[in-house]
Design a protein around this nucleic acid. Sequence first.
DNA 1: GCTTGCCCTGACGTGAGCGTCAAGGTCTAC
DNA 2: GTAGACCTTGACGCTCACGTCAGGGCAAGC
Lengths: 136, 136
Amino acid sequence: MVMRIGDLASEAGITTRALRFYESQGLITAQRAPNGYREYDEADLRLVREIQALQSIGFSLDDTRPFVDCLRAGHDTGDSCAESIDAYERKLADIDACLGVLSARRAQVADKLERARARLAAGCPTTTTSTTEQEH
Amino acid sequence: MVMRIGDLASEAGITTRALRFYESQGLITAQRAPNGYREYDEADLRLVREIQALQSIGFSLDDTRPFVDCLRAGHDTGDSCAESIDAYERKLADIDACLGVLSARRAQVADKLERARARLAAGCPTTTTSTTEQEH
DNA sequence: GCTTGCCCTGACGTGAGCGTCAAGGTCTAC
DNA sequence: GTAGACCTTGACGCTCACGTCAGGGCAAGC
């Protein structure tokens, strides 16, 4: 089942521009028809779907490389290779690090918000003009 | 205490380029000496410190605007104004949304990792060549 | 006068993942 | 033969917060 770039794009729910970009990044390749048109098959569709699935859970295109390589090496799933497992672990570590940073930030922002609200509720003066002037 | 851009930069632990950028974004302003040099005072240092503090907890430069405006309006702290409180709340919501997405991703990646490992440990064939061939 | 060190503006580069022209070739149907 | 739908490459645009030149002015010490 030979597809042209537009066919593959609509099958995968992606743009042709994205497909050409993946090719420029070495993630996918294409046969060429005599007229220069790119030609793809189901294996390519699988690759693109793998890329999409990984992207949707936070993988960058570069992160998907081991999975793509694994599939292209003939494995049934992109994560049947040790490199893919490693990539999962690294991503998990990245996410955990990110979660840690975000949680810390959340706490700081929540704290600042609470204090600011408290000051507001207490009617604290927000400008340091002299008190005697204010009472005049 | 008049400072030139290099002085303010080293006081704030920032680059002169960053200061000029803040100015280009309308966050800070500077007096000009007759020779064209920018001149700053302690109030400007406060502004920059506020910007830095907010940046460090995840605020974009644009997000810091209400705080900067609040300080410039004469308030003692950048978060003495209602707009700043709003900004805190929006940021908190952003962070929570981000935390939600990240947690979901974490779960998905962890799940995929676990399954992939299980397949590996179970010695599942990773390529679908015919079984008879494999047993030959 | 010359070096040194500060300052100025303007403008391009960075990274990610494409979007969006521009200018053209190809194939099919009418 | 021509309209329309597809394809090609190339190149700039976008976000963000600056980094990093390039090319030049200003001020002080020797």
